[in-house]
């Protein structure tokens, strides 16, 4: 799992590449949480265009980051999720918490 981040003021965009499962979720969690501690993040965007696999461990990671950014008064969105990833996202109901495109 490769993680690339881009921060413009309070907008943090995280580009994920690879497979998102229990094994890789903790690295993503640690990277994002550290950045949210170091600076004020009001908008967290997960770019999933290069994520080829995701299971419920990915949902747990996304829900955890959502709670964190929400507690800081911010919001979160997911973009470029492919068909396979969208199926898991929809099943989780997480699409009711954030914008998914």
């Amino acid at each position: 799992m490769d993680i690339t981040v881009q921060q413009e003021k309070s907008v943090l965009t995280v580009f994920l590449k690879g497979e998102l499962d229990h094994h890789t979720a903790s690295k993503i969690k640690d990277t994002i949480d550290l950045l949210m501690l170091e600076s004020s993040v009001k908008m967290l965007i997960l770019d999933m265009s290069e994520v080829t696999f995701m299971d419920s461990s990915g949902i747990g990671m996304i829900a955890g980051r959502y709670r964190r950014v929400k507690s800081l008064g911010g919001s979160m969105s997911i973009r470029n999720a492919n068909k396979v990833i969208s199926k898991v996202l929809k099943m989780s109901g997480i699409n009711q918490l954030m914008k998914i495109s």
């Binding site: 419920s56 461990s57 747990g60 990671m61 955890g64 099943m91």
Partner: peptide, 14 residues
Amino acid sequence: ELERSGLGFSIMES
């Protein structure tokens, strides 16, 4: 506490 979504069995089933 481990950020488990609780969806594992639901996904296996569906």
